[in-house]
Design a protein around this nucleic acid. Structure first.
Lengths: 364, 364
DNA sequence: ACTCCCCGCTCAACCGCTTTAGTCCAGCTC
DNA sequence: GAGCTGGACTAAAGCGGTTGAGCGGGGAGT
């Protein structure tokens, strides 16, 4: 009670004082500038003094005040990432945390912090980016979920805010005349789609549905286009091989699956490629609920692997990619841009298909 | 090519100049201090001037430089959250993104940004907290995954860094004499466990296993203790009702399930409570693989709901809690602490059990 | 009419660091 | 020994805000 009262009265421990360069200067008997030179590996101090200053700083547990450093023209030491997703869609996917964990790994090696924000929609995201820029809060940003006609690169370029787009634009630029506005790292969706179709075609599938993600997202469109190209190469018609768009949720994944399974048995698709793990699991579950055997009557492939794909029965064939690695690559590219690297596109590692029990020769 | 060369040569758009208070002062014909007073709703300027200054600021798209503001004794406008988890365990759980999304909602209403960091272990987390404090990067932090004998509250208290522990300590303090070191928000795990056991007991279950999360996490221990208490209330022995610890992964959830199903049929547990959705789904999948019917021979309850629990067959009975709401609550409490609220414990909403098809009367 | 006070505003210092422009002195050249 | 060079270090300005002290002027009080 007394204890509770003591803490309840708003009495707090007097915060420990944070040492400043002035403290170091005094203790080391030099000027503040000398301290600055010493600690930043700049010429202008003798090796002896440098060492002494370093020791004092160490003793005092000094760390540069990030605000002061940022204010005097230096970097803020922050990168930004804003994720525009309606709250309910950010549920299950493991993709983001993994990506972020990779990003962190690369950034923290250079002591760069990550400012993270989740917002509802693209307009809010634009506002956040603009505000971060105006407040000089971040040195650069990572942009995710690029879209066709994405307004963000132009905004970032006009603000002069260094950025790297993740899941890029490069692949769409083969015929584009416009220069790249910002750097990006991209995955080879076309190559990945080719490997998926190789797998299914060689198993004997001729009627395939691609349950895609949201229309308007660059990689969705890219996969849809790639699917058509791969189908065309094999003389498969649009009746045989098609894409349907969803919002990535388990609900729409399940719904799309139901509609497919409602088709007449002899012309019904024999394989489904889902654009994420959650929809694939939901789809598999719909098939199980209807008693449609997998893979005998329906093969399932998930684009993106996760624990989910391994806990279902049968386990799901999946397109495996190194998501943390992709994040790391993107963060490294951002650091490079901050160091003055030119705008460019960097290709991530090609995903590979991991065949499991959910895909096999079509029955009948 | 020319385009590529032009952008490749490192020629960037000259960054737009960010307006400062000096610009506003000049345009409005007043001093910088007047501008500061006007924009911060401080007395010392006439309504007319205030309005004029505001308009000019608006026109110029001015936003306070966060570094400058932080430097002059103000807040940095950042809250911090560090997540100590080995990279591979951060996979599937939806919990975190949802929590973070709730946190953001509350923080961004007050224009506070969230600095986010993922690290490998607790020691690194302590180092990060210490560094953030020394660099004055954050005004306060949110602490997740509290443990028994957690070193973080003491560190934060000694640094004087405002903090809120999420998933609290309060429930463990009934007999504690030590004052609360930092504020916390907590969920009523005991109450939740009671509702789970009510459900299973009233269905007729007498042999129940709790597949818990990691030992040493405060909420894991709390749930284990609560389970024992609930069992004792019903005169169930430690043979009948027990907890086993895991690392929260699908792999260990599956493994625990296998060991349970290996027990002799007539003394085998008839219900399993999993501490997260991923393990519950993995467990259900093991049961399906072995041909053990759910719920006829095994009832399954998941602690924490997510899309996952709804895509399995049968759908999983789950303990539903409002995770974004919990995050919102925690963030609001942090804001309150920053505003000078005393250290205290706040209780979150009681989770409720959502019965679905995975739980029913035990067969035989 | 004179003081007093408050309002509305400006001045200048300050936050902690970086950086430019010196100052000072030792050592070298011729 | 004067002149020059360059290395080690200091003084001071500046980054963009906040804030306490100061100041002129007009209305109220007596």
């Amino acid at each position: 009670m007394t204890a509770a009262a003591a803490s309840g009265d708003g009495i707090r421990p007097r915060p420990a004082r944070r040492p400043t360069m002035k403290d170091i200067a005094r203790r080391a008997g030099v000027s503040e500038s000398a301290v600055s030179f010493a600690l930043n590996d700049r010429p202008g101090v003798s090796p002896g003094t440098r060492e002494r200053v370093r020791r004092v700083a160490e003793e005092l547990g000094w760390q540069a005040n990030s605000a002061a450093r940022a204010l005097s023209g230096e970097r803020s030491g922050c990168a930004g990432l804003v994720l525009a997703r309606p709250a309910q869609t950010l549920g299950v996917e493991s993709f983001f945390l993994q990506l972020v964990s990779g990003i962190q790994e690369a950034l923290s090696a250079r002591r760069v912090a990550l400012l993270f924000q989740v917002v509802e929609d693209l307009d809010t995201e634009l506002a956040v980016l603009r505000r971060w820029w105006a407040e000089r809060r971040v040195d650069g940003v990572l942009v995710v979920d690029p879209r066709v006609d994405d307004p963000r690169p132009a905004l970032l370029a006009s603000l002069g805010l260094p950025a790297v787009v993740i899941g890029g634009l490069e692949a769409d630029r083969h015929h584009a005349e416009t220069p790249l506005a910002v750097s990006n790292v991209w995955a080879d969706d076309a190559g990945a789609m080719a490997s998926v179709l190789d797998h299914l075609y060689s198993l004997g599938h001729r009627r395939i549905v691609h349950v895609a993600g949201m229309r308007g997202l660059a990689h969705t469109e890219r996969r849809i286009v790639s699917l058509r190209a791969e189908a065309a190469r094999r003389d498969l018609t649009e009746d045989q091989v098609r894409s349907v768009a969803t919002d990535y949720s388990d609900a729409e994944g399940a719904e799309a699956t139901r509609r497919i399974l409602d088709e007449p048995p002899h012309t019904r698709p024999t394989a489904i490629v889902y654009d994420n793990d959650v929809m694939a699991v939901a789809g598999a579950s719909v098939a199980a609920g209807r008693g449609v055997p997998v893979p005998a009557e329906l093969s399932i492939v998930a684009w993106d692997d996760s624990a989910l794909c391994r806990v279902t029965h049968p386990r799901l064939t999946a397109l495996v990619r190194d998501t943390p690695g992709f994040g790391r690559l993107a963060a490294q590219e951002l650091l490079a841009v901050l160091d003055g690297a030119p705008v460019r596109g960097v290709q991530g590692e090609l995903p590979h298909l991991e065949p499991r029990e959910s895909s096999g020769p079509p029955g009948k």
